[in-house]
Design a binder for these strands. Sequence first.
DNA 1: CCAAAAGTGTTGCTCGTACACCCATGA
DNA 2: TCATGGGTGTACGAGCAACACTTTTGG
Lengths: 235, 235
Amino acid sequence: VGEEGALNTVQGSNPSGVHGEESFAVDVRVALFTVAEGELLLALTGGDHAAALPRQTLRPGASLDNVALGVVRTAIGSGPDYIEQLYTLEHTIDGDHDAVSVSYLALIGTHGAASPSVSVSWASPSGPLGAGLDHKVVDYALVRLRAKLGYTNIAFNLLPESFTLTQLQTTYEVILGRRLDKRNFRRRITASGILQPTATHLREGSHRPAALYRFSRDHDPSSYLTPPWAWGAER
Amino acid sequence: VGEEGALNTVQGSNPSGVHGEESFAVDVRVALFTVAEGELLLALTGGDHAAALPRQTLRPGASLDNVALGVVRTAIGSGPDYIEQLYTLEHTIDGDHDAVSVSYLALIGTHGAASPSVSVSWASPSGPLGAGLDHKVVDYALVRLRAKLGYTNIAFNLLPESFTLTQLQTTYEVILGRRLDKRNFRRRITASGILQPTATHLREGSHRPAALYRFSRDHDPSSYLTPPWAWGAER
DNA sequence: CCAAAAGTGTTGCTCGTACACCCATGA
DNA sequence: TCATGGGTGTACGAGCAACACTTTTGG
């Protein structure tokens, strides 16, 4: 998309326009989460000692976002329900060349359908990881995920299409790592109007059946990034 | 910091370990803001038609953060009062090679002291920009800046060490692009306890002098990234 | 009838918003 | 004395947190 007309005007420390020794291997790695049976799980490759986040080397002509999508598809056989870029870090390969790593946060709801196509396994995000870089990425992914739980509907991307309020609450609790009050939670959610009731109920034990709900799309305000008094009224 | 033991385990599409054609030029560019005379200003190089964000090519061995700091120092002769990484985008140089650009948001308070060392000028962030990529970076920088205004003390990095409450309020208004109520603003700020009163007053016109305050450090909770009910009480 | 999970209301407090007037100073 | 910006209080509504019992079902 040709740009960079003014590359050398001031800071350009590469007057020749040749890349030579000033070029880097770039990889894209993804912290892909799901929730199953009351646990938050992270997709890892090369299990056991050398566990690592799924990743892919960036090749010329590819976009970062598309590579990130490809990493997820390769890992679990389907695209994610949610994905966003996290952070970019530099690191060293073999102590020789320098490299740059662009990380993404991704979520998948019904991870059961297409089982991991390759040697990808689901593990606790607090478990061991081979690379130090992956630790940073996972830690930061969890911070972002917890934060966005508050002002977005990101949690719905960790659930199947229809779900009970208890399932939804459990998802929140698993991510936040603490219990929430049932009545307050239900009031918050229902008051926000992001739920569409389904006619159906889920009966699955010797107890009262639970109503099933569906996420009402067109309601995810990513504009919630602003503080209460930064968008609305007040004068 | 040798890592990457498991590089080729699963997604590795570079089995030889050689970079060859899979390497990229990486540059670091900074959206550096200041506030002067009731205006939010952006540092630009190569004025007029070819205006661009200050940037620097990444060289092996350098860290992204240090390069970003260097870009600011080169541009205005001193380090920023605040800096954080924003986002990473891929783009094309000369329609030939592919490149990756890591962008940063930076703030400087008293920008007057060391005047721009090179051909850097302060301009409105809504003005024209040579590169399309720079537009995206500036737009996103403004979104982040406005958002962080709410749950961090980021605004103090745009002010001199001591300042009046009106100066502080003006800073908020300039960034948010709208007026705020004086009494509510002062109550919010003083109630938060992030201000230390100075004994001094500022007299600068035929009107009542304004009390000068100092920002009380050790009070910038970056942990405000979490929602109200995600960190504190509730059972 | 009993275990087990679903479902439901009220109260107090904090915080954001709207709104108008007196104070201190220099000219 | 007057023009200019500095400084102050109150009342309403919204939203969060604390807290316990009844309902429906399968076995």
